[in-house]
């Protein structure tokens, strides 16, 4: 049950991880002024790209992911339903991460922009 749930939510969970990492890193690094803004910008972009890759990988090879998460083979009756939901959610998650990347590419990392 829990494994199936995580499988369905692969995309959104990785998206949430992405947001946590980039928002946490960017806002605290900017608050402390620890690194030059350009580097902060790249530090934001990197997790987006990596996590997007992970989602796409999981969507391309769903069966091993399912087996890894649940320890069982995909149930044949439920599989088409589970798979299509997982793929769609993954797609929306990738879209959201693309949007994060656009932000990182277009905007300076720490300015208030006001």
């Amino acid at each position: 049950m829990i494994g199936t749930l995580i499988f369905i939510l692969t995309g959104p969970i990785l998206w949430a991880a992405d947001l946590t990492i980039i928002y946490g890193a960017q806002s605290s690094l900017c608050a402390f002024g620890a690194l030059p803004p350009q580097i902060v910008g790249w530090l934001v972009l990197a997790p987006c790209v990596i996590l997007m890759g992970l989602v796409l990988l999981a969507l391309a090879k769903p069966s091993p992911v399912f087996r890894g998460l649940t320890g069982a083979s995909p149930p044949p009756e439920q599989w088409p339903f589970l798979l299509s939901i997982t793929r769609l959610l993954g797609g929306i998650s990738v879209l959201a991460m693309v949007y994060f990347s656009i932000a990182a590419l277009l905007l300076p990392a720490c300015g208030q922009l006001r």
């Binding site: 806002s27 910008g41 934001v44 932000a103 905007l107 300076p108 720490c110 300015g111 922009l113």
Partner: peptide, 9 residues
């Protein structure tokens, strides 16, 4: 007044 990039996320 949070940095613009945070808002953009």
């Amino acid at each position: 007044g949070i940095p613009g990039l945070s808002l953009a996320f």
